[in-house]
């Protein structure tokens, strides 16, 4: 069992290659700044990606498409409650997490009681969340309290604070999946829900907690991103719909469920940011950038799946 057989290594290698290509173009200038930016922006993708990974682990058909709307709603309500007043950062955090908790319960209620496929349930519900966000502050941009903004853009031991948050959460998720009873139950449910149920796993409780987790992770990301970028915007979550799924897949987790991969999510989050930077520094326009990003994701998914078939 060498390190090369671990599926997460590939996203990390890809991130390193993209990093090297950019530095080759700038002949080494700005290496530190580039790494810092990748860790800052990658942290947001990594946190939503960790949540999405838990849901995708539940098995085929399980995915949360309400991630962008949850981020927007949590950020909007939190910033509105804080109203740029100093010393309210904790209040805002609690509100954001509470919104995430409520969204998770609502999503799962739709899936469980109405027996809707998760894709439809979360997509439809996200329209409601987005409308609530619009209705609650009518598009006004409220600045975060300055202390919170300083935290979100600040650094500790040379690394961005948001990256520390992302790393901490990654370790928590890793411990839960690899070492805890609950993680075993989640992985068992994702492989074969009926067999897991007959082995004594409380599968519906596992599913409910997983949908709540992804919503809480999204809400936290929304809160941090709004603080980082100086206020909540209605389209702030838009790019995280594809991003949250892409980092899971590129990171080496199985789309068929029952198998997940925490370090790969971080590697893939850095890679996704660096690809965009690379195309920017090579002077590609927005259209070319999107086409190439899509092509790269498809290529990696194909490469990963053929490798697994041969193994």
């Amino acid at each position: 069992m060498t390190v090369l057989t671990k599926p997460w290594i590939w996203s990390c290698v890809a991130a390193a290659v993209a990093y090297a290509l950019i530095l080759g173009l700038t002949s080494g200038r700005g290496a530190g700044e580039l790494a810092y930016a990748a860790l800052s922006f990658g942290a947001f993708a990594a946190i939503v990606g960790l949540g999405q990974m838990l849901v995708i682990t539940l098995g085929p058909g399980n995915v949360d498409l309400s991630v962008p709307a949850t981020m927007t709603l949590a950020a909007t309500l939190a910033l509105k409650a804080m109203g740029t007043d100093p010393g309210t950062a904790m209040l805002g955090l609690v509100i954001a997490l509470f919104v995430g908790f409520g969204v998770g319960i609502a999503n799962y209620a739709l899936i469980y009681f109405l027996r809707l496929p998760p894709i439809i349930a979360t997509l439809a519900a996200s329209l409601v969340y987005q409308s609530l966000a619009i209705w609650s502050n009518r598009g006004l941009r409220i600045k975060p309290p300055s202390g919170l903004a300083d935290f979100a853009t600040g650094r500790f031991l040379g690394l961005p604070n948001v990256a520390w948050v992302g790393l901490f959460l990654a370790i928590v998720v890793w411990v839960v999946l690899e070492r805890s009873v609950w993680g075993r139950w989640l992985l068992a449910t994702g492989q074969n829900m009926r067999a897991a149920r007959l082995a004594g796993v409380p599968v519906e409780l596992v599913r409910a907690l997983t949908y709540i987790s992804v919503a809480v992770f999204s809400a936290l990301t929304g809160y941090l991103l709004a603080s980082f970028s100086g206020g909540a915007a209605l389209n702030m979550g838009a790019e995280y719909l594809l991003m949250s799924i892409a980092v899971v897949v590129v990171g080496g987790s199985s789309i068929a469920g029952g198998n997940s991969n925490v370090p790969g999510v971080w590697g893939a989050a850095l890679f996704m940011f660096l690809v965009v930077s690379m195309l920017n520094s090579y002077g590609a326009g927005a259209g070319v950038r999107n086409v190439l990003t899509g092509t790269i994701i498809i290529g990696i998914v194909i490469a990963a799946s053929t490798r697994r078939v041969r193994a």
Binding site: R179, V181, R194, A199, S254, G258
Partner: peptide
């Protein structure tokens, strides 16, 4: 259909129903 968890080792397939025994603070006693 009803029994095997196909991605797992023999070990994990045996222990899945008995994980709560010996678990401390929710962590599996490996």
């Amino acid at each position: 259909r009803d029994g095997v968890l196909p991605l797992w080792s023999i070990l994990r397939n045996i222990s899945i129903s008995a994980l709560r025994q010996g678990a401390r603070r929710g962590l599996v006693d490996r």
